[in-house]
Design a protein around this nucleic acid. Structure first.
Lengths: 238, 238
DNA sequence: GGGACGTTTCGCCGGATGACGAAATCTCCG
DNA sequence: CGGAGATTTCGTCATCCGGCGAAACGTCCC
């Protein structure tokens, strides 16, 4: 009983951390995987610095955020991939049903900005249309198996090695896992492989971050590489 | 902006549902996968029926619970497997670090009640030592692959078919997924396959529920079956 | 040294929320 | 029909919590 007692209050306490709009906004912003300063978060959420400070205290205390102090700055980021995944899951569950009416918005999107794939990062891996497209292409090529769960195949392991980003099982984080995309409603590749792919994509110039949000856009080189390595038609990303 | 606005409030609202101890207790109780009446939940949590009623309203309204009214009873259960998984994930994250001191408790447990495996159900699949043992045995036998993610192998698919519980991909729920066990700190089999296995185990008399909690114990027939089908030594479950 | 800047501490205020009990509803069953 | 039991509605109360601004504290840089 006392044990179940602890689990109950632990769950409630953890949920309480995310139950406030300001703290929720902080966490969603931090899903970009980078470290933000306390002041940046305060401005982002539109609250006073003192208010933000107290919130950050609670989030750090609750183990959701990790902090690193540098001089007069207080940098915070999500504690680890597991926390990031948890927040993504919650956001996915909370996402409005968004039955997308295929009216003007779709048409406008189709005719819009050239090489812009509606992609974004989700903590440390690719998400959005781009993330889904890559994940589907890998599945179609037999690099990833989604029919019986979510795992890389041996061919998938080789593919990463050939890419120059060999995957080494490390710690508790799984090599591959599906992360439900809350805009596309389908899983995209997460886990160590997802992180490695995203890192490689940014380093190799396949895509670049745009703005301060989590958005990324595919570069021409990226289109070529994805077409060659995964058979992804450039049109898919536009 | 308005979109990110909605996501933020959605996340906060969802978290707020679980941020109350009483509601958290309800949800954890409902993890046994069965339907409880409003009164049962009220007694379980030690609150007045009127209080419980209001909480259930909110949980149902938030989509976490599904209700079914039968006469003067109001039955509620978790809305679906996804909600159950979310709650398990949160509980796992919130679980105290539980560095288990291997003193008396372990010794006592080792010498205790004969054929009692410390198993339990997690919504609709097996968890605890039993769930882990089964998952590990399936992995060792090549029925499940955990090194590159978490997925059944083709041999695993056949194993379920041979068992008389063929798996048919259905809807959005994945065939196999890892569910982090918050007492064992390792993933056990969840998803459709986990549910099928648990259902089969209960129907075939491999294990029976004990008490009103989520605990299950393995029967002698269960020991025989698990030894034969998975090479699980009976001692593992004791 | 001194000013600018980022962060924190403190005290206070107003709104939100969970708890209860009493009484009203509703359903079942004798 | 009428009583028993399950659930809900309503009014009330106490508490908690997030917000702010002012002032203090540290660090950086001129």
């Amino acid at each position: 009983m006392s044990s179940s007692e602890r689990v109950t209050s632990g769950l409630a306490a953890l949920a309480a951390l995310l139950a406030d709009e300001t703290r929720a906004r902080f966490c969603l912003a931090l899903l970009d995987g980078r470290a933000w300063t306390a002041g940046e978060l305060a401005r982002h959420a539109g609250v006073a610095p003192s208010t933000a400070s107290a919130h950050i205290d609670r989030l750090v205390g609750g183990g959701l955020l990790a902090e690193e102090r540098q001089g007069r700055h207080r940098y915070v980021r999500l504690a680890d991939a597991r926390v990031a995944h948890l927040i993504e899951d919650l956001a996915a569950q909370a996402a409005p049903e968004h039955g997308r009416p295929d009216g003007p918005p779709t048409l406008r999107a189709a005719s819009a900005a050239g090489a812009l794939a509606r992609g974004r990062t989700c903590y440390d891996h690719l998400a959005g249309r781009l993330g889904i497209a890559v994940t589907e292409a890998m599945t179609a090529r037999g690099l990833l198996r989604q029919d019986t769960g979510f795992a890389l195949t041996d061919a998938g392991l080789r593919w990463f090695a050939d890419l120059g980003a060999p995957l080494a099982p490390s710690g508790r984080r799984p090599l591959a896992r599906g992360c439900l995309d809350w805009t596309e409603r389908r899983p995209h590749l997460a886990g160590l492989a997802g992180a490695a792919l995203c890192r490689h994509a940014l380093e190799a110039g396949w895509c670049v971050r745009i703005g301060s949000a989590r958005a990324v856009k595919v570069t021409p080189e990226g289109e070529r590489a994805l077409a060659e390595l995964l058979g992804l038609p450039a049109a898919t990303l536009r």
